[in-house]
């Protein structure tokens, strides 16, 4: 009886009695969700273009952030370091296309997936060789990202809004909106969808696979850079950031692997869901439930929509 009370009554009573805490939890969840959506977006872009789950997306986040901070440490002004990092991500996109993807055209997806494993370990080694393994501090101030916090007096309590979190939400939203427009309204976007449907068919109508892949990997590189800046600002820039990419998996399961809106909605549901779950129900079993709660949420959705919320329904004739 006591357990039932703790599950079904106490959390809701706390929500009502301390609405400021509920508002804070929702805000943290939304911010977390936007950041998860950013990570997931990198996966979605590449999956849409090549049907490959890019295992290297996590290390791309680290590599981009380390390049930015590393260049700044060498004395390069922050804005120039940002531009140079974008250039490095472009070179990386071209190199991936030439060395990894091009030789594997029309190979089974699993081969391309394994190739991204190889790319991951290569980038880990290259990153450690160039930048070392020590953590670095993100140059938030130099990039004109806001610092500090505002305490809002709400519901008889305080809701603390970190300015960097607001910036993260704004930047991520703008980026997601721009990408959505770019890929749905432009020629390149249509070409990308054609490539995603069939490499051979796309080639037959004159779409250049090389160009599309470079554009998509470059875009995923930019997304990785923004992700690295925002996550790095919350902690530090180190190879530990790579693990954060695992958070994208439940988001992708939930939102679908091919949908940009899916990444956003999935990210927000997972972000808010895990924060609410951890905060109100976590203490019942000793805390630390958000690690697996995200997967439980995703699995619950999968029971009703196996293709995810916005994923393409695949019907195959037997």
């Amino acid at each position: 009886m006591d357990l039932l009370f703790k599950i079904f009554v106490e959390p809701f009573a706390l929500m009502v009695s301390a609405p400021d805490l509920l508002a804070q939890t929702l805000w943290e969840g939304l911010v977390g969700g936007v950041l998860y959506a950013l990570i997931a977006l990198g996966f979605v872009l590449i999956f849409k273009a090549s049907g490959v789950f890019n295992f290297a997306q996590g290390i791309m986040v680290v590599f981009a952030a380390l390049t930015l901070v590393g260049l700044h440490e060498k004395g390069v002004p922050a804005v120039l370091a940002l531009l140079l990092t974008i250039a490095v991500m472009f070179v990386l996109a071209v190199a991936v296309e030439r060395v990894v993807l091009k030789p594997l055209v029309n190979q089974p997806d699993i081969i391309l997936f394994m190739a991204t494993f190889g790319l991951t370990y290569f980038l880990v080694g290259l990153g450690e060789l160039i930048f070392g393994g020590e953590p670095k501090v993100m140059i938030t101030r130099e990039l004109f990202l806001p610092q500090g916090a505002t305490d809002l007096q709400l519901f008889g309590g305080v809701v603390r809004i970190q300015h960097i979190d607001v910036a993260a939400a704004v930047v991520a939203s703008l980026m997601i909106a721009a990408l959505a427009v770019f890929f749905s309204k432009t020629r390149i976007g249509r070409a990308l969808r054609a490539v995603a449907d069939s490499h051979k068919a796309a080639l037959s109508v004159g779409i250049s696979l090389d160009q599309i892949w470079i554009i998509v990997w470059f875009t995923a590189g930019i997304v990785a850079l923004v992700t690295g800046i925002m996550w790095g600002a919350r902690s530090d820039v180190s190879f530990a950031l790579q693990i954060i990419a695992l958070k994208a998996l439940p988001v992708l399961i939930l939102g679908g692997f091919t949908s940009i809106p899916g990444a956003i909605v999935g990210g927000l549901i997972i972000g808010v869901g895990e924060k609410i779950g951890e905060f109100y129900w976590g203490p019942l079993i000793g805390g630390g439930i958000e690690t697996w709660l995200a997967y439980v949420i995703a699995l619950l959705f999968l029971l009703y929509r196996p293709q995810g919320l916005f994923g393409e329904k695949i019907i195959e004739r037997i």
């Binding site: 805490l21 911010v31 996550w231 950031l241 954060i244 958070k247 203490p283 000793g286 630390g288 690690t291």
Partner: peptide
């Protein structure tokens, strides 16, 4: 408790 994969993602912990 902070899981290894959430070392840099502790906002829930700090809400608690």
């Amino acid at each position: 408790p902070v899981a290894a994969q959430d070392m840099q993602n502790q906002s829930s912990i700090w809400l608690n």
